[in-house]
Write a protein that binds this DNA or RNA. Sequence first.
DNA 1: TGGTACATGTAACATGTTACATGATTAG
DNA 2: CTAATCATGTAACATGTTACATGTACCA
Lengths: 184, 184
Amino acid sequence: MTSRSVNATAMSLLGFLHEGPMTGWNLVAAVTRQIGDFWSVTQSQVYRELSTMADLGLIRAGKLGPRDRRPYSITRAGRKVFREWLATNPGPETIRFPLLLTVLFGKHLPPGRLGEFVEDHRKAHEQRRDEYAGLVEAIESATGDEPPDPYIEATVRFGLAYETTVLDWFDSLPPALIGRPEQP
Amino acid sequence: MTSRSVNATAMSLLGFLHEGPMTGWNLVAAVTRQIGDFWSVTQSQVYRELSTMADLGLIRAGKLGPRDRRPYSITRAGRKVFREWLATNPGPETIRFPLLLTVLFGKHLPPGRLGEFVEDHRKAHEQRRDEYAGLVEAIESATGDEPPDPYIEATVRFGLAYETTVLDWFDSLPPALIGRPEQP
DNA sequence: TGGTACATGTAACATGTTACATGATTAG
DNA sequence: CTAATCATGTAACATGTTACATGTACCA
C-alpha cells in the first residue's frame, strides 16, 4: 500500500478548504474545535503550511479583507493532491499523554499530588466531552435540506467516546493512588 | 503551577531506568510494549537522549556487554531531576490519528476504500488490545511476595480501555460509510 | 477608551522521523 | 550457513513548539 509522503498537517488543512475559503486563523479554530481530540495544529505551523502550499499552487490567497484577513481557497491542483493523499493508507496513530507518564511513575510522587493533577485534567476533559456532546446533538437534530455529513458525525462520535473513556478511567482510579483516602 | 522545561521523552527514559540499568534497545522495547498507547519513542531519539543525559550526568554508561550492549544506569542527580520533573503539572495530551482524518474527509474517497483502511487498522488494534489484556491478567494474578504496582496497573488499564473504545467505534461505523453494503 | 478577541507572521529552537551504515549472536 | 533478531549509532530532514512583534476591530 503506497504510503504517504506529503505533509499530513498540510493535507488536513486542504481538507477543510474544500468547504470554502478560510484564513489561517479560521483553520486553527476549525481544527481545534472539530477534531482537536485526534489532530492538532499550531498557528505557526498553519501559516507556514499555507505559505508553502500557496507556493506549490495547491491553494491561492484571496484579497485581504478587514483586519488583514487573508482567505485562501483550494485550487484544482490542490484538490487533486488531496484526493491522492487521502486514498493512501493512513499510518498508525501516535499519542503523547504526559499525565499517563505521571501516573505510571506515580510511586515516586508525594501522596496527593497525583490527585491534584487528575482533578485539573478532569475539568478539561469534561469540557471537551460536553463540547462533543453538543456537536453530536447539533448534527443529529440538523434541520431539513442539508443532510448532516455522516463522516463528520462519525469523527465527532469518536471524540465523544474518547473523552468518555478518559473520564471513566479517571473515575476508576483507586482512591489510594490519587491520595484521596478511603472513608474512615 | 510550574510547567515542565526538560524533555519529557528523556524523563520517561529516566523513569524506566529506576528499575535498573537498561540499554537503548531495551528502553525502546519497554516503552513500546508497556506504554505504546500513550507514549512513543524512536530508536534515534532514545540514543540521542541517552547521550545527552550522560553528558549531563543524569545517567552513567556501564561497561560494554555482549553485542556491544551498553547499559545505562541512573545517577543520584538523575533521580533528583526526575523527581522534580514528575512533580510538575503534566500538559494536555496530543493525539495524531491519521485514520480519523481519512474518515472525516471520507466523502472524497471512492466507496470501499475507507473500509479497507479500517479493516487494516482493526487488526493492529485488536492485537494491542490482546496484549494489554494479557498484561492486565499477568498483573492481577501476580504471585506472592512482590505485590503488583497499582500505578503500572492503572496505566495498562488505560491502554486496554482505549483499545476497546477504538474497536467499539470501528464496529459502530455505519456500513454505508465503510462501503460494506447493507444486507440485501 | 480600554480591554478582549481577532489576525498575521517570523525566528529560534526542540523534537521526531527516515534512511542508512555497521556488525554480533542466535536459531534453525 | 543463512536468515532473523539484536544492537548501536549518525546524518539529514521534517515537523512541532515557544516566544515574540505588530496591529485591527469590536463591544461595553
